[in-house]
Amino acid sequence: MSTATIQDSSRARRSRGGSAPRPPVGAAPLERSRRRMFWAFTAPAVLVYFVLFLVPVGYAAWTSLYKWDGIGPKKWKGLKNYQTLWQDPTFRHSLTNTLKILIVGGVLTFAFAFALMLILREMNRKLFARSVLFFPCLVNAMVFGIAAGILFSPTGPVDKILEALGWSHPPQWLATQHLSTMILGTLIWTATGYYSAILMAAVDQIPEYLYEAAELDGANAFQRFRHVTLPMCWDVISVCAVLWTVSSVKIFELILMYGGSSGSQPPAGSWNTAMYVYTEAFPTASTPQLGLATAAALVSLFMVIIFTVVLRRLLRRDPIEY
C-alpha cells in the first residue's frame, strides 16, 4: 500500500516538474537508469520503515486519546489522558527525573567529554586510553546497575576504600533518595567516553595549519581553543546535543536494574518517563493503562522535539568550509 502511494506521488511530482530542465534522452544513460531504479532500491526500506516504525508512532498518538486496557473496548478520552498525567505526582516526578538527566547530565557529560578530549589529545598512548574509556557505552547498562549493587553496598569495595582513606561514614549510596543521583552518575560515566571520542574524531579533522596560523598570530592555548577548535567542531557539537537528547530520554534498563536488589519494580523515586510508560502499560498487579502509557510516551517524544528544535536554533552557526 505504501509503495503505491509513493509511486503515485512520484509520478505526480514528475509531471508537475515538467518545466524543470531534464537531461536529453540518451545523453545520460546513467541518469536514466538511476531514475528508474530509485524506487526499486528504496521501496523495501521505505516499506519496513513505514509499517514497523511510522505506523506504530501514529498508532501511539491515536491510542493516547483513549482509555484502554488492551482487551476491552476503547473509551474516548481526548486530551484528558494528558491532563491525568499532569495531575499524577508519580508522572511529574518521572518527568522531573527525565529533565534532570537530560539537562544536568547533558551539561556535565559535555563538560567532562570536552575536557577529556583536550587532555587525550596531549597524551601518549591516547588511542588506548580512548578505547578503554569508550568501552562502557557498548555494554548493556544492566551490567553496571547490578555491579553497583555490590560496589556501593555498605560493606562493598567503594566504602572499604573510602574507609581506608579516612571517611568512616560514607553516605548510604543505594538508599532510595540517592538512587536517581547514582543513576545519573553512572550514566555520565558511560557517556563521557563516547562523546569525547566523537569530539576527538571531529577535532582530528581540523587542519593543522589553522593552529599554526593562530600560533603565529600569538594566540595562546586558550585562544586557540576558543577561536579554532570550538568553531571548527561546532556542527558536531550540535549533532551531539541532539543525540544526547534522544538517548537520555529513552534510558530504561539502567533504571530498571540499578542496585540489583530492587523488587519487581524499582522505587518510583528513580523512574523516568520511559520507566513510567513501561510500568503503566505492563504492570505486574493492576490493569494496564495503555492510553495513559502512550500519552506519557508521546510527552517524551514532544520533549525530544522541543529540545531538538531549541538546541538547533541555539547552536546554529554559519557553516565553515575548509
Binding site: Y59, V246, T273, V277, A281, A297, V304
Partner: peptide
Amino acid sequence: GVPGQVMVVPL
C-alpha cells in the same frame, strides 16, 4: 529522534 517507548505499546 523517536525514543523507543513511543513504539513499545503499538508494536
